[in-house]
Simulated assay, not measured.
Amino acid sequence: MENPATAATPAQSLLERLGQQLSTTATAQAVYGTPVERDGITVIPVARARYGFGGGGGGGTEAGEAAGSGLGAGAGVSLTPVGYIELREGRSRFRPIRSSVVPLVAVSGAIAWLLLRSVPRLLNNRKDS
């Protein structure tokens, strides 16, 4: 007979199944894409993978609560391209993909600085009018 303290609850069972499902998708193929070969050069895409899942369950067994139970779970996967591996003439080289956010932030900062610098002049011109 199974000990009730160690018996898997429906929530635990669901989380185990969800974890098993995620583990089958967390393969090297998800991070290192299918290699592509052209003109003697092989390119292997590289991505950063993040996985997460959680869940829980409960029941209305306390006084004043409706009878019944609830169960819920969720999972998420995020794959972000970070670069590629280039294979050429027996040598390999990792080529990162540069993010375009840094130049955008720098340009936005420069524009904000120029606008703020012109505010006193605009206020002085307004007073003179």
Rank of each mutant, 00 (worst) to 15 (best):
T27M: 06
I85Q: 12
I41S: 11
S23E: 03
V77R: 12
L18E: 05
G68S: 10
G76W: 15
P96M: 01
G55R: 10
S23I: 07
R38D: 06
R17H: 08
P4M: 01
L115P: 09
T34W: 05
V105N: 13
R126S: 13
P96G: 09
V105D: 07
E86K: 00
V36N: 11
I97S: 10
G74C: 05
K127Y: 02
P4Y: 00
T80P: 04
V119K: 03
Y32A: 15
A7P: 10
T34K: 09
G76F: 09
R50K: 15
L114A: 15
T6D: 08
L114C: 11
S78Q: 08
V105L: 11
S100M: 12
S69Y: 14
G54V: 09
G64K: 07
I85Y: 02
A67V: 12
Y84C: 00
G58T: 02
A11E: 03
A7K: 12
Q21F: 08
N3D: 01
P45E: 10
E2M: 02
A49E: 02
E2Y: 12
G90M: 05
E65Y: 14
A5D: 04
L116Q: 12
L122N: 13
G68F: 01
T42G: 02
S99H: 04
L18W: 11
P10G: 01
G76N: 11
N125Y: 15
A5K: 06
P10Y: 02
L122E: 08
F94G: 08
V43A: 08
G58M: 00
V77T: 09
S78R: 13
S100I: 10
T25E: 13
V36W: 14
T42V: 10
T61F: 14
V102S: 14
A5F: 09
T42H: 12
S108E: 13
V31P: 01
G60S: 10
R126A: 10
F94N: 11
S13P: 08
L87M: 15
I97N: 15
S100C: 08
R48S: 08
I97K: 09
I44H: 03
V77S: 08
G109N: 04
A112C: 11
E65L: 12
N125S: 06
L116H: 02
I97V: 14
S108Q: 15
